[in-house]
């Protein structure tokens, strides 16, 4: 059927990164860009779920939960090495256009809350407030001494512009974070970004900048950061790379709107520092230093997020950009 094939020609891809396997995600992002696909920010708007790396059990469970929310026609691509990306994504349009296959595999019926979700909460009496098998929000004191409804929301691991494999469980009242716990799901092996070399270091900063700019709602510059990151890694000569990076850094650093939206949170200072580290690394490409080890970012995150609203919290996470 014409419409299905036309729709299948340019899918909307939701990418999920796996900690340590950034190389696969980078290759997938580049291929999605080359093919001109749309990037989805949620399962409802996605037609392809692309898992970049081999997830451990808890990350795999989160990915399955996201996959269960993707409506047919849909395709599920699991990539384990950068070399397989091109071939795997090339098959997607055919999968999506295969209407009989999609009809046969389409899932219907309603979702039910897992019964096991309850005991974690402590007392049995919470079930009394349950509607359709799921509890209603309970009240708790907020930072201003009011009693308000609390929701428990996980952020990550399947989220656009989010560090690979990170999960932050937040308790929120309205959109104010009351408390947060951060952890990496199944961190594994050596990190792609730990390899020594100025190019790797610059690319790591650009990758983090892309997340920060994306969270700040500046998709165009986030995409430019990714392009620069890929150029830094694929050996583009410094003579062309450095001017491009300098132009990018200048434009981002000069944005008054971005400064207005990110200062006062410690985010803008970190943004400038990262831009600076990027151009410095690209100016000295023969410097073999690896990315400096980070202090315990995960440990301080909860105290930084408490009392912030979700928009500010996401900017702080992106600015700190914890690594496993």
């Amino acid at each position: 059927m014409g419409l299905t094939a036309y729709a299948a020609g340019r899918p909307s891809a939701l990418l999920v990164g796996v900690p340590g396997a950034a190389a696969v995600r980078l290759a997938a992002e580049a291929e999605v860009r080359r093919l001109g696909w749309a990037s989805a920010s949620s399962p409802a708007s996605a037609s392809v779920l692309v898992v970049c790396g081999d997830p451990g059990p808890s990350l795999a469970a989160a990915i399955d939960a996201a996959w269960n929310g993707v409506p047919s026609p849909r395709a599920d691509v699991r990539l384990s090495s950068p070399g397989t990306v091109r071939a795997a994504l090339a098959d997607v349009p055919a999968t999506l256009a295969d209407l009989p296959g999609q009809r046969a595999s389409a899932v219907t019926g309603s979702w039910r809350p897992p019964a096991a979700a309850e005991p974690e909460h402590g007392h049995g009496h919470h079930m009394t407030g349950a509607v359709h098998g799921l509890a209603m929000a309970e009240r708790a004191d907020d930072r201003d001494g009011l009693k308000l409804d609390v929701l428990h929301l996980p952020f990550g691991p399947v989220l656009p512009y989010w560090p690979d494999g990170l999960q932050i469980r937040m308790a929120v009242q309205g959109d104010v974070v009351q408390s947060a716990e951060a952890a990496f799901l199944d961190p594994s092996g050596p990190d792609f970004w730990d390899e020594p070399g100025a190019r790797r270091r610059a690319a790591a900063h650009l990758d983090a900048l892309a997340r920060l700019l994306g969270v700040a709602g500046w998709r165009a510059q986030a995409e430019r950061a990714r392009l620069l990151r890929d150029a830094a890694l694929d050996g583009t000569p410094a003579a062309t790379l450095l001017p491009r990076a300098t132009r990018f850094a200048r434009r981002v650093a000069r944005s008054r709107t971005l400064r207005w939206m990110t200062d006062g949170l410690g985010v803008h200072a970190r943004l400038l520092a990262r831009l600076d580290a990027t151009t410095t690394a690209l100016a000295h490409l023969d410097d073999p230093e690896p990315l400096p080890p980070e202090p315990d970012v995960l440990g301080v995150l909860p105290s930084l997020l408490a009392g912030r609203d979700l928009a500010a919290a996401r900017l702080i996470v992106a600015a700190l950009d914890p690594r496993p």
């Binding site: 419409l3 299905t4 020609g9 909307s12 047919s72 309603s110 809350p113």
Partner: peptide, 29 residues
């Protein structure tokens, strides 16, 4: 965003509309 060949994206909205029309309905809990 510096994407290659920006002009080929002219029909992105039409593709998105086509995707929306062929998609299965979906209902949250």
């Amino acid at each position: 965003s510096g994407a290659p060949a920006p002009l080929r994206h002219w029909d992105d909205p039409l593709r998105a509309a086509a995707r929306a029309l062929v998609q299965q309905r979906r209902r949250t809990f």
